[in-house]
Each structure stands twice: as structure tokens, then as C-alpha cells.
């Protein structure tokens, strides 16, 4: 069933949270903002579960970059300084479903709830404007920060793939953890905003 067109209006609007502005990014802008991260080992391990640096050509297909109608990228702007501290994307995939990719490049913001705060706002926004009914995520089994973020937002751990991947650089073999959150779960939780039903 096609989503009602009206629900998609607003997906490209800037969003505000208590501490941040989420500013929609076009492809070129997102590429410029993120290209240097392709050599950042901590960003690489979190995004790709690998320490292998990405070429510019490969980065052009980075999950942090937007794609028309299916992947929306937002610069996370610190309201106080006006600086971008990272990028959060939402990709529509599957039946009324979406998943996130995030990189907070500014280390000063690590452990300060930037991902929680922005992701909660994005979930509310995509439920309201994209008709999204389910969010899912797949995380490296030792990405403890990311696991915390999913759990804290109320995602359910729906499975694990054991010894699923190997980092070509470090040789490490690791597990992958799967998360899922349905709209009804979200709306019963503490971060949901009231949504006016049509």
C-alpha cells in the first residue's frame, strides 16, 4: 500500500531538540562534511565494523549520505556553538520500516546523550511524517555505546548473529546484534510525542 502523500510532507524540514538543530543535508554538503571521517578508525569501526579506511569513491556510497526519497541525512548542530558535531541519517527500508546511521565526529560530545536526543526526535518525526511503523538496527556486538542507545530508547534485542563478520584489518571475528522497535512500543515509552491521528 502506498503511503499517503501528506505524511511525507515535512521530511526535509529542520528539526529542533533541546540542545541541537537537525539540519537536512543534500548529497554534496553531506559528502563534504563527512569525507574526512573515512580515515577515522573509531568512525569506521562503528559504521562498517572494520578499521579499513574508505576511498573517496567508496565513501560516495557511505550510509551517512542521503539518497533521494529513501535516505535522509541531518547535520547535528550544537545550538550553543552553531557547530556541526556529527551526522544522523534515517533510511526507509522494508515495509513502513527505517533504520539509522549516525556518526558523532566531535569527541567532546561522546557520552553526552547526543545520539539519544536526536534519535528520539527523528523517530517521532518519521512516525509522524513518513508513516514509519518499525525501526530496526544492526550493531557490532562490542559497540557498547550504540547498544546502550538502542536499549535506552526501548528497542528490543531480537537476535544475535554469532561470529558473523571478520574485520579484514584486525582479523577480529565478531557477533552482530539485532534490534527492533515498533511504533506501539515507542508510543508507550517515555520519549514519544503525541501524534494527531487523521
Amino acid at each position: 500500500m502506498k503511503r499517503p502523500a501528506a505524511t511525507r510532507v515535512g521530511l526535509g524540514d529542520p528539526l529542533e531538540t533541546a540542545r541541537f538543530i537537525l539540519r537536512p543535508l543534500g548529497y554534496i554538503e553531506a559528502f563534504r562534511l563527512t569525507a574526512s571521517w573515512r580515515n577515522d578508525p573509531e568512525v569506521l569501526i562503528a559504521l562498517f565494523q572494520s578499521l579499513k579506511p574508505r576511498s573517496l569513491r567508496k565513501w560516495m556510497r557511505s550510509p551517512l549520505l542521503p539518497r533521494p526519497k529513501v535516505r535522509f541525512a541531518y547535520a547535528i548542530i550544537d545550538r550553543e556553538s552553531g557547530r556541526s558535531i556529527g551526522v544522523h541519517t534515517v533510511a526507509l527500508s522494508g515495509y513502513r520500516s527505517a533504520y539509522f546511521t549516525v556518526a558523532v565526529s566531535d569527541r567532546d560530545w561522546w557520552g553526552k546523550g547526543a545520539v539519544l536526543e536526536t534519535r528520539a526526535t527523528l523517530i517521532n518525526h518519521f512516525i509522524r511524517h513518513a508513516g514509519t511503523e518499525r525501526f530496526f538496527g544492526m550493531v557490532h556486538g562490542r559497540n557498547l555505546s550504540s547498544i546502550f542507545n538502542y536499549q535506552r530508547l526501548g528497542f528490543s534485542h531480537v537476535g544475535s548473529w554469532h561470529r558473523h563478520k571478520q574485520d579484514p584489518v584486525s582479523g577480529e571475528i565478531f557477533d552482530v546484534v539485532l534490534f527492533e522497535l515498533f511504533r506501539e512500543q515507542w508510543q508507550a515509552g517515555p520519549f514519544a510525542e503525541a501524534i494527531d491521528e487523521p
Binding site: G111, K112, I147, N149
Partner: peptide, 14 residues
């Protein structure tokens, strides 16, 4: 729990 303690953030979880 992690929900009841504001200081239980992503870094402290690690």
C-alpha cells in the same frame, strides 16, 4: 536501572 539513573549514559555503560 539505566532508565532511572541519568548518569548511566553511553560512556558509563561501556
Amino acid at each position: 536501572t539505566m532508565a532511572s539513573l541519568p548518569q548511566w549514559d553511553s560512556l558509563s555503560h561501556m
